[in-house]
């Protein structure tokens, strides 16, 4: 990716751990969404993007395609778009961490987690999950 004017901001954000209001991880900054202002000038960051649908294109090649197809499986509902978290929800940038103002249950990045929990972990004895 080449974005000369914003590369530093991108570096400050990309691949950081995203945590929710309680500090619980909900994924990584797999990509960022940029918008070029109509009036011209450097692009601005609109949102951070999470999940395989965002990471796949950044990986590129066959691995990226495979990653994307995993992402589509996980989001069968309708739109195969990355999970989009508007920059306004970011409250704090720590070293290696991007803190949000929302709970991770509302972020929409935990489909795989929920699926694994329901299908694999909960049925095992002693999982601590009431079934």
């Amino acid at each position: 990716m080449t974005m000369p004017p914003t590369i530093d901001i991108g570096r400050a954000l990309l691949d950081r751990l995203v945590t929710d209001v309680d500090g619980r991880p909900l994924g990584r900054v797999d990509d960022i969404e940029l918008r070029t202002p109509e009036a011209g000038g450097p692009p601005v960051i609109e949102a951070i993007l999470c999940g395989p649908m965002a990471l796949g294109p950044r990986l590129g090649g066959r691995v990226g395609t495979w990653w994307l197809s995993v992402g589509r499986r996980l989001r069968p509902e309708s739109n195969p778009e990355p999970v989009r978290i508007p920059l306004a929800l970011v409250t704090e940038l720590r070293p290696g961490e991007v803190r949000l103002s929302i709970s991770r249950d509302d972020a929409g990045t935990l489909q795989l987690r929920d699926w694994v929990l329901d299908k694999l972990i909960a049925p095992l004895p002693g999982s601590g999950v009431a079934t």
Binding site: L112, R113, V116, L117, L120, I121, L124, S127, G128, V129
Partner: peptide, 10 residues
């Protein structure tokens, strides 16, 4: 606990 980190345990 497993229900707090299901993917890790899986």
């Amino acid at each position: 606990r497993p229900r707090e980190a299901p993917r890790f345990y899986a």
